[in-house]
Amino acid sequence: MGVVNPRIISISALYAILIFLSLFSRSLAELVFLILITCILSQSLNIIMGLAGLVSLGQAFFFGTGVYMFTYLVINEVNPYLSIILGGLVSAIFALALGLVLLRLRGVYFACGTLVVTLAAPYFISGTGIVGGFAGLNIYRYISPFYNIYLCLFSLLVTSIVMSILTIKLLRSPFGYSLKAIKDDHDAAETLGINTFRQKTIAFCISALFSGIAGAIWAFKQAYILPSIAFNPLRSIEAILTMLVGGTGTVIGPILGTIIYEAFRDAVMRTAPGLQVLIFGILVIVIVLMAPEGLIGLLRKRFKSIRDKIF
């Protein structure tokens, strides 16, 4: 690595393209918005799954928690921008509570736990009827004084860039190394003096924090919330898909994966509306079976000379 880090250049270039696109037209701005949402989810999944090796099927849960916390605060007339941060924090607290139970156990319990919470959450909302309950809630009148798509985009962009920087820092930090060690051999990591439970819990909380922020910003922009959309398990699979496409455990992987995915989704939406979920589910299965290391893994094999410089 020289004075100018090629990895940082390539990531900055991707972000620059996104910003440029969003200024081009309103519809492109909407697309960039979706890209950034998925990108943050994918990057947050990357921390818990790509680095620490824990399969999480619950990014949608933390996303939804962010959505609902944001809504709850906003209808109680809290400043939306503060609510975004608080939404993320509450998601992180949920992750802490969940992690205390699930991360003590080995095996599939963590993945199952995250899935079960995601599936149960909408029932909790409908059953108790809080924040609009089953029928959802329109919050436009609460947020309209602050509403501006470019401000939403900007806050998303900041969050996403913060995540990228965080991931870069993590990869070369003691904490990041301990997560990688846990991924490769849990017991050996423990005997080396790594408090595996604590490290996993922290990683899980960071991951949930950013998913929650993404959810809160999403709610800000949509201004209409529904339990089945906020906690849609599809979002978890989107995060997994984009991370796998780009390459797990890398900085640029989730960003690249998301851009490819959203472009592809846009095309599918135009040609075969209603079949997207079907197509993406099949895509995930194919990638898991054929290229578990993702697109970057394939590229790495192809162009060995540049692999360390960019990825």
């Binding site: 003691p174 190394y177 301990s178 990688k180 060690a181 991924k183 490769d184 051999d185 017991d187 050996a188 990591a189 080396l192 003096g193 790594i194």
Partner: peptide
């Protein structure tokens, strides 16, 4: 033997150096 299979030798030892005592 239980090395961290996907990490390099350097990273393996580095993890030891960063943790432990």
């Amino acid at each position: 033997v239980r090395v961290f299979p996907n990490l390099t030798v350097f990273e393996n030892v580095l993890i030891g150096a960063l943790n432990g005592r």
